[in-house]
Nucleic acid binder design. Structure first.
Lengths: 154, 154
DNA sequence: CTGAATTAGTCAGGGCACTGAGTATTTCCG
DNA sequence: CGGAAATACTCAGTGCCCTGACTAATTCAG
């Protein structure tokens, strides 16, 4: 039987890691606001007035998914969506006061959660953890977006 | 503006890692069979005749999700579902010949994909990558499953 | 200036992932 | 034996995630 050990499959580990995070988030941060939703709030705190597509780019979500997430945040009254007067295709996004309030509250809780989540690793290991994951993710994303100004042999 | 750097958020990195893997899987392994579906096939190659719940446990999926995945694999004719004659609650699962064939084919492709995915890391870094992710995921899962009885082997 | 690309967003469709409620079957206990 | 508890599975509901096809608005080229 040619069965394989899933522990050597990075995809399987990535999925388990994300699931573990999802559960911890639910218990330690919020049952209402999800981690991707928080990422969107955070992007709009950093850069108010972004359009939908750019927010998606900042947090790593495609146009369909970002539309759903933003629609939920809008329904909850956490952000406003206004048609760009200068370009009728865009919607400009801005947090409401409630959105800012929620972002502040969750920022504190998220920091606590991250500590618990990373507690099994020493400080040095945590830095390596971030570095390795980021390098793998960046490289894989680069495979998908080949048009980058990488190799322009001039 | 109290915005946070998402690169220091393990949850965000985990999500990006999984998305990157998803895309690579789609192009290098299969557009039909997903990574979780392959994990189920693999579990049944290792242990034919498992019931649904146990398969879910092996691959890290809850009862609802594993039911959907198995239903899809059944519709594609990759596995058979038979009610356990000894316990009318269970369904026993077994791969069909086609299921075995698909598993063999994808095993080869998956190995190739993993090499590409992990190419940015040296062999030593890959080992660390596995170790760190596994420790974090295990610890977080442990938080949710309080004090499992330490496997009394009969 | 006008028709062809490009761009932002929507919508339909498929799949993963969880919770909570409900059904059927088995087991456990008094 | 018979009812309560446990177990395996199903179903409804929510949310994330992608692709591919579509609409509307803008930009660009001839």
């Amino acid at each position: 039987m040619a069965a394989v050990d899933l522990a050597t499959h990075p995809g399987h580990l990535a999925r388990r890691l994300q699931q573990a995070h999802y559960l911890l988030w639910n218990t330690m941060v919020s049952e209402e606001i999800t981690s991707p939703q928080f990422a969107v709030l955070n992007a709009l705190v950093a850069e108010p007035g972004l359009d939908q597509r750019t927010v998606g780019e900042r947090v790593g979500l495609d146009r369909s998914t970002i539309a759903e997430v933003i629609s939920r945040l809008g329904r909850r009254g956490l952000l406003d969506k206004v048609r760009d007067p200068g370009d009728g295709r865009r919607f400009l996004l801005r947090l409401t006061d409630e959105g800012l309030r929620v972002h502040r509250k969750l920022t504190v809780r998220t920091a606590r959660m991250n500590q618990v989540f990373l507690a099994p690793l020493s400080a040095g290991e945590q830095a390596v953890f971030f570095d390795l994951i980021q390098r793998v993710a960046d490289a894989a994303e680069g495979l998908r977006n080949p048009a980058e100004p990488v190799a322009a042999p001039r």
